[in-house]
Amino acid sequence: MNEAVTEAVLETSGLTKRFSGFTAVDNVSLSVKAGSIHALIGPNGAGKTTCFNLLTKFLQPSAGKITYRGDDITHLKPADVARRGMVRSFQISAVFGHMTALENVRIALQRERGASFDFWRSDRRLQRFNDRARALLEDVGLGPFADTMAAELSYGRKRALEIATTLALDPPLLLLDEPTAGMTEQDVARIVDLIKRLRQGRTILMVEHNLSVVAGLSDRITVLTRGRVLAEGNYETVSRDPAVITAYLGSDHA
């Protein structure tokens, strides 16, 4: 591996979050390498999503430091983190239900291109983003659904739409919160394919429950239990770790 690949994009040291007496994330130090797919796994209640919310600033850490591309982002606002190119998805599909799929993607294109504050202009002005938005929808297999209301899309398609919206920002660092949660087998396969294509030129940090997804995709896996890092390494190392097997993988891997 060359230098550029091993450089850390996102790092945390001693990241801790306490909720009145309960420590959800306990002294977690992560290092996400540029260009890699890094997975955060662990049993329910391990603190994966809390960790995710801390990284994207939706929660303020009780202690610890987060650096993104060498800058301390510990005290930034969530919108500012997004503007720096670190964009997250949500565990519960986050689409704008009362808008069409095309409008969903367009909303992400609008801000950067300076078409979000003009209240005196017609919204026909937004049509110039249509080609780009359609291309993004096409990319995730939603081409025929451009004019469908997002609320009417199936669950798997909503997730795909959410990813298309996220990709509209072309983020160098993508954070996916359980991208395949609650999906059918076919949808999972489609999302896995999509993630494989997405990795070109970007770094991905994902929280995932589905081990087969993680096995096929991740360069590096961090296992969390009870808010602490239990093990870290590639799939082979982690899946053979006895502590991980007892804590997470359970009897079928024993």
């Binding site: 704008f96 909303i107 078409a115 937004l126 920002l169």
Partner: peptide, 23 residues
């Protein structure tokens, strides 16, 4: 029915998601 109005509608629909998109 302006670009601004579209953003406001999206905020009403799902505010955390808009924040995550940098709004």
């Amino acid at each position: 029915h302006s670009p601004f109005g579209q953003v406001v509608r999206a905020v009403r629909d799902n505010e955390p998601r808009m924040v995550s998109l940098g709004y």
